[in-house]
Design a binder for these strands. Sequence first.
DNA 1: TATGAATGAGTGTTCATTCAT
DNA 2: TATGAATGAACACTCATTCAT
Lengths: 231, 231, 231, 231
Amino acid sequence: MARKPTKAATPPAVRANAKDSAHAGNDAVPASSRATRAAERRAAIVDAAMEEFIARGFAATRLDDIAKRAGVAKGTIYLHFKDKESMFEELVRTVIVPVVTRLTALPPPAGSVRDLVETFASNFLKEVIGTRRGDLVRLIVAEGPRFPSVADFYYREVVSRGIAAMRSLIELGIARGEIRQKNLAHYPQILVAPAMIAVIWQSLFARHAPLDAQDMLRVHLDLIFGERSTT
Amino acid sequence: MARKPTKAATPPAVRANAKDSAHAGNDAVPASSRATRAAERRAAIVDAAMEEFIARGFAATRLDDIAKRAGVAKGTIYLHFKDKESMFEELVRTVIVPVVTRLTALPPPAGSVRDLVETFASNFLKEVIGTRRGDLVRLIVAEGPRFPSVADFYYREVVSRGIAAMRSLIELGIARGEIRQKNLAHYPQILVAPAMIAVIWQSLFARHAPLDAQDMLRVHLDLIFGERSTT
Amino acid sequence: MARKPTKAATPPAVRANAKDSAHAGNDAVPASSRATRAAERRAAIVDAAMEEFIARGFAATRLDDIAKRAGVAKGTIYLHFKDKESMFEELVRTVIVPVVTRLTALPPPAGSVRDLVETFASNFLKEVIGTRRGDLVRLIVAEGPRFPSVADFYYREVVSRGIAAMRSLIELGIARGEIRQKNLAHYPQILVAPAMIAVIWQSLFARHAPLDAQDMLRVHLDLIFGERSTT
Amino acid sequence: MARKPTKAATPPAVRANAKDSAHAGNDAVPASSRATRAAERRAAIVDAAMEEFIARGFAATRLDDIAKRAGVAKGTIYLHFKDKESMFEELVRTVIVPVVTRLTALPPPAGSVRDLVETFASNFLKEVIGTRRGDLVRLIVAEGPRFPSVADFYYREVVSRGIAAMRSLIELGIARGEIRQKNLAHYPQILVAPAMIAVIWQSLFARHAPLDAQDMLRVHLDLIFGERSTT
DNA sequence: TATGAATGAGTGTTCATTCAT
DNA sequence: TATGAATGAACACTCATTCAT
C-alpha cells in the first residue's frame, strides 16, 4: 500500500540542476532521506516478521508472507537481513531492547517496596500480558532451544537483568521489614513466576478460561508482603 | 500393555517333543506375535517422534529423521498415523495420559496439607522437571497456538484437572488453618507457577544458570504455609 | 485373531484315517476343489481390476483398491500375476477373448447381407455400447500407446478380424447387389465407424447429449444399403 | 520452438546511438520484455507438457520430465499453473481453442456442399490426423472420464459446435438435393465418424496397417453424396 | 496358498535464496 | 535500491512389491 507515491511527490526544485538524466527517477526522495526510507522499510519488515513468526513459529513462517505483509518484495528482505535465521535473531533483539529499556526505566524508588513492585507489575500487565510482546515471550520459549543465540541474548538482556532487579527489590523489602521470607532473595523467580504464567496462559488458554491477571498478581503480592490493610 | 503375553502363554508341554525340525531356525523371534511387534514399532515411532519434535519443533521435524531414529521405513509411519499432524496430536495424547494418571494417583490425603503438596511437588520434580516430559510441556507451549486441538486436550486433561486438584488442596489447607491467604483458592495457578517456571527454566537457561528447583519450591511453600519450624 | 481355527475345528471324524497328520487342516475344501477356488479368486481379481482400470486408467489404479474390491489380500494378486503391467495385459486378453468369440460366432449367413449386418450391429449394441465392454474399448484407446503389446493383441484379435469379417460381408453385399459402392470394400472401417463413435460417445458425452445408437446405426445402414422399403 | 525470435525482431534503429556503454553487454536479449519471456516460458511448458501427456497419459507423466523438456526448473511450472491437474486442464484449453477457431473459420459457402465438406475434410486431414492435435483427441478420449471439466469443455467448444456445423451442412445438402438421406441430419456424427476413426487408427494401428485416410474419406463422401462423376 | 505389515524409491509441491532487470 | 521471476534442494506422502508368518 502507498507503494510509489514518491514520483509525484518529488518537488521539481530538487531536481533543478540534475545532470543524471539517464536514471533520474530513482532518487526522487522527498522529505525523508533515502536512509530514512530504508529504515522505514526495515521497520515494516520487522513488524511483519514479528506478526508472522508469532503466529506460525520460525520454521512455518514463509518469507513470502512477511514480504506481502510488509508491502515489499521478497528480494528486499535480503537487502536488510542475511537470511531467515539472522532475520529472526535480529528481530528478537530489535523488538526486545526497547521493552527492556522501558521496563528498567524504573520510577525512582520512592514509597514502599510493595508500591514499587506493584507499579512494576502494573506496567508489565499493560505492556506485556496479552500483547504482542507477551506472544514474543512465548515465541522465545518455543524457539529458544533451536536458537541458542536468541536464548542467550534473551537471558543476558532480559532474564538475568530482571532477576537481578527483582533480587534488589526483595532485598530492599527484607531490609525494610516488608518481606519476612528471607530466602525469597535466593529465588526472585518466585516473584515473577505468576506474571510469566499469566503471559503463557493468555496465549494458550484464554479462550477456555480467562484469567484476571491483575487480581492474581495482587493475591500473589499479598502472599509475599502480607495482606494489605484495606485503607 | 500386555506386551509379551505369548511367551508365558505358550504351554511348554506343547513343544515338548516337537518334530518340526525343518524350520526350527525361524523361531529365533517367536514370542513377539505380530500384534506385539506392531505395538513395539508404534512405540518406537512415538519415542523417536517425541525426541525429534522436542528437539526441532513440529514444522522443522523431518519424518525421515523420525523413521531413521525409530529404525523403521518412512512408509511404516503411515501405517500408524494418518499424517504428520495427527502423529503430533496423537503423540501428545499418548505421552501425556500416563503422566496424568500417575500424578493424579495421589497418595491418600494423610498428614498435613503441606506434606501432601510437598509430596506432589517432589513427584513433579522427579517426573517432570528436567526430563523429557518437561520438554513436552515446553513443546506444547510452543506449538499450542498452531494446534488448538493439542492445546484443548492439554487444557482439558492436564491443566483444568491440575487446577481443580490444587484448588481442593488449597481449600483444605485454608479449612485446616494451614493457609492464611483465603484468596489463594481463586488462583491455584500461583501454587504451581514456580514449578512451571522451573520446567521452562531448565529447558532454556539451565546451562546459563542452573536452578535448584527443589529448594525453590520449598521456599515457595514456606511463603504459602509459613516457614517450617525446623524441628 | 482366529488365525488357525481349522486345527481345532476340524471334526475328528473327517480326519479319521488321515495319515498326513502334519498339515491335514488345509484341505478341508468342500465342493469346489483347490484349483476351482484359485480360479474363482483369479476371476474376482480380474473383474475388480477391470473396474478399477476402466475407472482410473492404468497408472492411477492402485493395487490396494483392486485387492479390496476383489476381496483378497494385496499379496494374493502376486500369486496370479507377475506385476501390475502384466496384470493389465493379461486382463485385456482375458476379457476380450470371450467377446470376440461370441461376436464372431456369427449366425449362419442366411438372409440378406443387410439382415446379417443388422443382426451383428444389434448384438454389438447390446453387448458393447454403454457396457463395461464398451469402456474397455475406450481403455484400450487410452492405454494402447503405452502398452504396445495390448494394442498389438487388440489389433490382431479384434480389429483385424473384425475388419476382415466386415470386408467379407461388404463383398458379399456387393456381389449380391445390395451394396452399390464398390470401393467400400477397401474401407470396412466406414461400416463400423459409427458404432465405434457410439461407444466413445457413451463414455464421454452421454450425460451432455444422449445418443440413440440404435437409430443412428439404422440410418447409417440405410446410407449403405439404401433406405429400407417400409413394407 | 520459436524460442528466441527476439534477436531478429529487435529493430536495429533503436540501438543506433546508444551511449549506455557501461553495461552494454547485458542487452544481448533486450527486446524480449519480462512479459514476453514469461509468455515464452509458458508456451515452452505447454508444449512440453503436451508432448509428455500425450506420450504417457496424465497420471504417468512426471512434472520433472515436463520441466526438463521445457528447459525450466520444476518450480517454474508452479509460477504458471496451480498444480498438475489444472495444468492439464488449461493445457487442453490452450491447445484446442486455436484449432477450433481455425477450423470454424470456414471458407465462404461457395460451390456445392460436397465441395465444402471436402474442403473441410481435407483441412481436417492436414491439421489433425496424424498430428500432435490428433493425439490430443485421443488424449481427451483417454482422460475425459477422469477430467469431467475437460470432457465438458471439449464437448462444449468442439463437439457440439462441430455437430451443429455438420448438421447445417447436411441440411443444406438435403435442400439442394445433393444428399438423399433425409435422416442423416439427425446424426451428423455419421458424417464425421470415419474421420474420427482415422484419427484414432493413426494413433494406435498405423504401424500395423497404415490407413489412407484421404481416400477413405472420399469413399465415405461418395456414400453420402453419391459417386462423383469422373470428369 | 493367502495374508498384510513393511519397505523405500519415486513424485507433487513448497519455499529460501539468487540475480537479471 | 528494489523487484519478483526463476531456481532446485528438500520434504510429505504414496504405492508397487516383497516376505515372514
